[in-house]
Amino acid sequence: MSNMQNFSKGFFKENAVFVQLLGMCPTLGVTTTAFNGLGMGLATTFVLLMSNIVVSLIKSFIPDKVRIPAYIVVIASFVTIVDLVMAGYLPELHENLGLFIPLIVVNCLVLGRAEAFASKNGLIPSVFDGLGMGLGFSMALVMLGGIRELLGSLSVFGIQLIDMDGILLFILPPGAFIALGFLIAFINHLRKTT
């Protein structure tokens, strides 16, 4: 597979959220606005990229039996870095994402790529895979966050479009499930007809 394919598959063909249904907790939990979705997506992309790089470099040194705990330590280190940096420089976003920042550790997407891709491929393909998967994940989060923000408060990235109350339900937890359900149904429809 070429690097371009490794990169682009994360957006549509193997999109983490829409197709593989990985990382659903942050997807549903933080997407009350498009900006929160973007922040979470980029934080996850950073962790995914760095863990893919490290795992692909050290894969030959790790005994097969302890590889999963080893990957988890690598991932948890980068999550801690993101957590501390975000708390220092973007305290407001850190407050909004809250619990879901440390929970990037157990995002099945990150561990899944380390196990399924980075542990079997070299450095360069792993970089492209990590970037593509991470940005595809971010795209999904921004889409869902955008839809919820638009319907829920009639604004986009914090800019009020119409000075009226939106459908509050879409900001509340039930709206996350329902919006994602219809979004996946729409993507399924597109995939079947193209």
Partner: peptide
């Protein structure tokens, strides 16, 4: 409908349950 089958429908039901 075909596109709704499986996970999308499950998510909508979860939304109703959450409500």
């Amino acid at each position: 409908p075909k596109g709704m089958k499986g996970v999308p429908a499950a998510l909508v039901i979860a939304g109703l349950l959450s409500m």
